[in-house]
Design a binder for these strands. Structure first.
Length: 429
RNA sequence: GGAGAGAUGGCUGAGUUGGACGAAGGCGCUCGCCUGGAAAGCGAGUAGACGGGGCAAAACCUCGUCUCGUGGGUUCGAAUCCCACUCUCUCCGCCA
């Protein structure tokens, strides 16, 4: 959420941001209502002032034993007017709040302006896409042939876009999760969090999923709960309505969670395989920083996520998202994309964003720079470190061999049974 | 699910016959004095949001409104009375 005063004083900047992100928002109506709000405020506050002084006077007179029916009668009338104005003002503020929650964050000045992924900027590449002397299989075929992924049975029990992992497939998923958590906690200095997978509406508003994108998330019928689309939601809201002592920043958290997404706008896309599931696992990195540190901390966060790919030996590239691909809440975003032989292209496995104070203002997360100073909003950042399902799919595809087996990356071997030789073969899982 | 207790400022903790103010005291913190330096001691200051005015603007100053879990109500006036809700704690029941 943007600061109401900022919007009032910088309407042009907001107008541009809305346009660059391809959003729609009632900015003009907002400015108009904001002016109306201040007018009402002044009128009602003057009346309340009158009420306060007169009430004090009544108290004084009563103590002296004097009756004051006239004053009380006029105050009754003033109160009627106050009630009316209060109601009107509340109406206006509710409307303002609603519009404010729909205004997108302002992109960083150096973010490329563009419509969609075609305008994203490649920052760097790492690793070489593998060359196969045979026709490589897609991960969903590998998964079924190796008997480690079972899509049909997931369809039978739950529906499309779900999967069972079995045997060494389940083991590999768990190995990846633990490997990433271990790496980020012991090498990169993140504190591990295991969050609730359900949150209430206010938390979803805090990070920006609601009110605008309700159709992208699942909610639990008959309750107020929403299934988290990412651990970003509970972990960022972990500090909601708090004032953090400045010396504790930056706070760096790493959290595993299952993630649930309705994928409402994705009918017919990525219908096969692990790429687009309603439920998937992810290890998420979340940071709370002082405003002047957030740029540096974002770069570090990206590097921490990249390290996972490097250690796994998966070829990837880093993309700087253009304005149209930034999303609603981010000011700056890098995507990490892994090479997928079956698609013959790079696909996203991580999205690392700086939200500046956009989420912090919504969720009320502040810090005190120095013991006596005024509390200010922190900057929040997060990034996948990484999406587990897509990483597993990439491992299957990139490390497959002609006989249909898959070689497990060296760094994951400690997470497999001691007797295992590091190769998943047909019939061995 | 049943019964009970509570929710006050950064923390702790007063404040329930409604009327002197965001609210005693303590801790913490800031500044000053003291000291060679520190501790102790002493003195002063220490909530936020919003709006108006001063200012080119920020800092700041000043006036006002609101905020004592949240929302409503009673009243000329509520932290203090009434209602609903949320959360925390204790006991009982149930349960992975």
């Amino acid at each position: 959420m943007l600061d109401m005063r900022f919007v009032r004083e910088n309407p042009e900047a907001v107008r541009q941001a809305i346009k660059a992100k391809g959003e729609k928002a009632a900015l003009e109506r907002f400015l108009q209502l904001e002016q109306q709000r201040r007018g009402l405020l002044q009128e009602v506050e003057a009346l309340k002032h009158q009420r306060n002084t007169v009430s004090r006077e009544v108290g004084r007179l009563k103590k002296e034993g004097r009756d004051t029916p006239k004053l009380i009668e006029t105050m009754r009338q003033v109160n009627e007017r106050i009630k009316e104005l209060d109601r009107k003002q509340k109406e206006v503020e509710t409307h303002l709040e609603k519009i404010l929650l729909h205004l997108p964050n302002i992109p960083d000045p150096d973010v490329p302006v563009g419509m969609d992924e075609k305008d994203n900027l490649e920052i760097r590449r790492w690793g070489e896409p593998p060359r196969f002397a045979f026709a490589p299989k897609a991960h969903w075929d590998l998964g079924e042939d190796l008997d480690i992924l079972d899509f049909p049975r997931a369809g039978k029990t739950t529906g499309a876009r779900f999967v069972f992992y079995r045997g060494l497939g389940a083991r590999l998923e768990r190995a990846l999760t633990n490997f990433m958590l271990d790496l980020h906690t012991s090498e990169h200095g993140y504190k591990e969090i295991f969050p609730p997978f359900l949150v209430h509406r206010e938390s979803m508003i805090g990070t920006g999923q609601l009110p605008k994108f309700a159709e992208d998330a699942f909610s639990v019928a008959g309750t107020e709960y929403w299934l988290i689309p990412t651990a970003e939601v509970p972990v960022t809201n972990f500090h909601r309505e708090e004032i953090i002592p400045g010396e504790k920043l930056p706070l760096c958290y790493v959290a595993y969670s299952a993630c649930f997404r309705a994928e409402a706008g994705a009918h017919g896309r990525d219908t096969r395989g692990l790429i687009r599931q309603h439920q998937f696992n992810k290890v998420e990195l979340v940071k709370f920083t002082e405003p002047h540190d957030s740029d540096v901390e974002l770069e570090k966060l990206v590097n921490d996520a990249e390290k996972v790919l490097q250690l796994l030996g998966l070829p990837y590239r880093v993309m700087l998202m253009c304005t149209g691909d930034l999303g609603f809440a981010a000011a700056r975003k890098y995507d990490l994309e892994i090479w997928f032989p079956a698609y013959e292209t790079y696909r996203e496995v991580s999205s690392c964003s700086n939200f500046r104070d956009f989420q912090a203002r919504r969720a009320g997360i502040r810090y005190r720079p120095a013991p006596r100073s005024k509390a200010e909003f922190v900057h929040t950042l997060n990034g996948s470190g990484l999406a587990i399902g897509r990483t597993l799919a990439a491992i299957l595809e990139n490390f497959q061999q002609e006989d249909g087996s898959v070689v497990i990356p060296e760094v994951l071997r400690p997470y497999f049974p001691p007797a295992h030789d590091g190769i998943i073969r047909p019939g061995s899982a």
